[in-house]
Design a protein around this nucleic acid. Structure first.
Lengths: 246, 246
DNA sequence: CGTGAACTTGAGATTTCTCAAGCGGGGTGG
DNA sequence: CCACCCCGCTTGAGAAATCTCAAGTTCACG
């Protein structure tokens, strides 16, 4: 998989089929939204999709790959604020405002752009689209809220919760099976998401591995004992819009 | 100030003047929204406005007083997720979903209810209202994002940031002057918001008091050295929709 | 092979927590 | 009117969680 980074192939979108169906968007509206895509561009892994502090010109939708949003702090540390999988709207704000975080590609990604100028017309012409984007945004808010709660707990619960969420979202996005999903994140990424040092994160992870809860290797996450893991995490997938605990 | 807890006086809302103007709502739409208020009720301080896990029947707007949203954890601890001041929409979701947190009155409060059933019609009839509520929700998300970043930092920065935000929001809501606002929270509330133990919070607070950054007494917060405090907090009020650092 | 990034391990320093106790004001019942 | 009690605040001290620094290992890649 070798993209020339930053390349652009314009025109008809090949957005993933499930895009915005979660939010209940119907045919005609979906078509209108797809028509508003100005281009789909690719970025190579590790590159920055949109720097912190920029005034965004387009709404960005992740089509392929995994990406994250992170805040750069004055002491050069980073706090990861969100993870994105294919189908996710990255930073869907009703009114574009100067961003307080950067968007980074974790793997090679492809991203659909919808210029805010075009979008604005669409929003007033088609209230359903606005409503669907609001729903998406509300879901991201629910996820963020879980992260907030998680950060208040100890490192073990934090990591367990993170892994539970990853496995749900990644498998739903087609990045693997339920108990065996792709895991392109480095431990540094995870540490920055959980607000832990890499060293400590590593130890907690090993501990959980030893206990037979999870295993991470070769860029894959294997949930060995899901119910035990969910218990450690106090995880209930309802906030992701899924059925209650299975 | 003695309300009979839970009392309800129906009819014409006396919503605060600035309500939803931040979100750019115009006369006619505002009137429609006000007309949808089924009643305004009062709750006494310390009481629970809406328990965790309930299916909400109405949108709640805080008219008077201070309230918070908190998640109850299985070990009986709590994580405060949000603070509300008059004019705030408490948990404004596009589609009402089972709540994952409780709403509590910190002071005596009065709250306007808009039944979701009524609201739904309003949203489709008047897209501007949906848009305004989305904007409100986006603002709450930005605040929550700041809390998330804050939780990743040390206790000193966390507290400083919290106090900066409080002073901005409370004074904007008419709960005091810029450097001298009402502070009805107990140290336990603050500790639960910041994910710290009360004991540790107390020590950090005293330290900041000794350094001449802030003073809290008699239910009032006094920002003694705002610029120093903002520096400790790495605080930029832009996310609240205010002008950049002064 | 040589190199760099990610992961791992050790050990001491620091932050934060828990438990325990004392203080002080406001409200309440006697 | 007084005594008591509860809640919120404060302080001390030892325990636990987490961090930082430093170094070693592994593995993919050129």
């Amino acid at each position: 998989m070798t993209f020339s980074p930053g390349s652009t192939h314009p025109g008809q979108a090949e957005l993933p089929g499930q895009f915005l169906v979660r939010a209940g968007l119907e045919n005609e509206d979906r078509a209108a939204l797809l028509g508003a895509v100005s281009n789909i561009e690719t970025k190579s892994r590790g590159s920055c999709v949109r720097p912190q502090g920029e005034q965004p010109q387009s709404l960005l939708i992740l089509v392929e790959g995994v990406a994250l949003a992170a805040r750069l702090l004055p002491d050069d540390s980073r706090q990861v604020l969100a993870l994105y999988v294919p189908g996710d709207v990255m930073d869907g704000q009703p009114v574009p405002t100067r961003t307080t975080f950067e968007l980074c590609a974790i793997t090679d990604v492809s991203i659909a752009r919808i210029p805010h100028q075009v979008l604005a017309k669409l929003l007033s012409a088609r209230p359903n689209i606005a409503f669907a984007l609001w729903c998406e945004s509300a879901r991201n808010m629910a996820i963020q809220q879980e992260w907030l709660v998680s950060l208040g707990r100890d490192s073990r619960a934090r990591l367990a919760h993170f892994l539970c969420e990853i496995s749900e979202r990644f498998s739903e996005a087609g990045l693997g099976e339920a108990d065996h999903v792709a895991f392109p994140l480095t431990q540094t990424h995870v540490a920055e998401a959980l607000g832990l040092s890499v060293v400590h994160l590593n130890r907690v992870l090993q501990q959980m591995r030893r206990e037979g809860l999870v295993a991470i290797s070769q860029g894959h996450l294997h949930i060995v004992d899901r119910s035990a893991l969910q218990k450690v995490a106090d995880f209930d997938p309802a906030y992701l819009g899924k059925a209650p605990n299975r």
